[in-house]
Design a protein around this nucleic acid. Sequence first.
DNA 1: GAGTGGTCTAGACCACCTT
DNA 2: AGGTGGTCTAGACCACTCC
Lengths: 273, 273
Amino acid sequence: MAQTPPASSPRTPEVNPPSFGSEAGQAVSGSATPAFSPLYQQIKGLLLQSLQAGEWKPGDLIPSELELAGRFRVSQGTVRKAIDELSADNLLVRRQGKGTFVATHSEQQVQYRFLRLEPDSGNRDGQGPAERQILDFRRLRAPAEIAHRLGLRSGDPVFEVRRVLSFQGTPTILEDLWLPGSPFKGLSLETLANHQGAMYALFERQFGVRMVRADERLKAVAADAESAATLGVAASFPLLSVERVAYTYNDTPMEYRRGLYRTDKHHYHNELS
Amino acid sequence: MAQTPPASSPRTPEVNPPSFGSEAGQAVSGSATPAFSPLYQQIKGLLLQSLQAGEWKPGDLIPSELELAGRFRVSQGTVRKAIDELSADNLLVRRQGKGTFVATHSEQQVQYRFLRLEPDSGNRDGQGPAERQILDFRRLRAPAEIAHRLGLRSGDPVFEVRRVLSFQGTPTILEDLWLPGSPFKGLSLETLANHQGAMYALFERQFGVRMVRADERLKAVAADAESAATLGVAASFPLLSVERVAYTYNDTPMEYRRGLYRTDKHHYHNELS
DNA sequence: GAGTGGTCTAGACCACCTT
DNA sequence: AGGTGGTCTAGACCACTCC
């Protein structure tokens, strides 16, 4: 920055100085709400904007810390702290010597980041990849509850997908999912059926929609006749019901999903801390 | 530190210098394994030792960053980074202007940090505190599976507790839990029955055992006759089975727990990211 | 060797809490 | 006023990757 060594001389960064006035040292923080936001949070916000705007896409290399520091007229340390947090939130991934990249669901290592079902014995790799089968695909007008979960209005167009995931030939997960029509315009059965790998990777590549976090609600339920038949279990077999709302940047809901998991040979794993 | 401004002169901190030799600049990182560990990680390790050793107990104020920096002969920034990570792991809690404290389960705000069951409508506060009832308490020799989960040997003494948690008068959780005998020596039915609040708070206060993280495995199961009767549901009612191993510092297992949750009016909430 | 992220330092100042 | 954590800077050097 344009600043002489021995302290003093307040910064005048590009980012809007939050609490201290634009010039003349630090204001006594007026009268109303504090509303103080540190510089690195502002930088974080700016980086988030670029991510939301699609300026940098999943997998992309973003500018170096030094370049960003220059662009925002702050020190490298401040940019680092902003990136640290975005990286902790799984929005960015640092790679020493190479740079910082936009996180993606397309990497082998995080293929099933949101799928918490694991075989009771052995690890996930041991059972091979999941076999996917689309049972149904349609475009419809959102019923009240679906609309509510997706932050839409009743009647807004949505896509509905029903599919089964099998492990080693055993149908294990039956799920319905709903996607808002606009962001996924052009989604087709063919696209879904031809795609290999995690569904969220497809969403990124084809629609630029990156799922960032999700909320799940779990319950134990008895299988209804249809579900039981699809999953190959007896009627009223206990199943794990997993209801998920997945969000993209900005906490915008982008998917509502209802799954029924067989848990006789698998379990839902969760780490508490 | 004793160090003149313009660079050079390698540090000679109290902590064992990891990869670069004790003197004469930076070694070319010999031949064998990298084994490089940054200073702040070493500091983190030292702080962890103090926590494990019980030098600072849950709720205690630990020395200030500046004092720790002096003690370890490193800069404040390095101590900060170590504390940052311990704080992110919920082992320490920073409070601006006051200091850094050892995290505890005894605070109101985190009373149910490990209990993910929530009412379907309304929040947790709306339903009032859980009513606890101890059904059984005994001291026994660990069967093979319990011993295995707790990292003990079959036949080692353990405590077994069976209890019910009710919300607004409705029995909702039935759980059995096992604790290793040695760390919990002196545990009695009276202690358990008289205690108000989260069980993990009791463990901290009475036994100095702090639960730091836990692994849970969830399944949907059908209620057996006894569980159904206790929880007031029909036989083979679907219940959420929650199996938990809780760990203290150092990843030492300190509790094995098997719970059966009614999920007709509650759900298990999980956030994915 | 150049470029990137990663570590470490030293010092200034701010925000918050206590006395 | 003095102490604590929180932010920000500037600069040095290290580890890693690629050319």
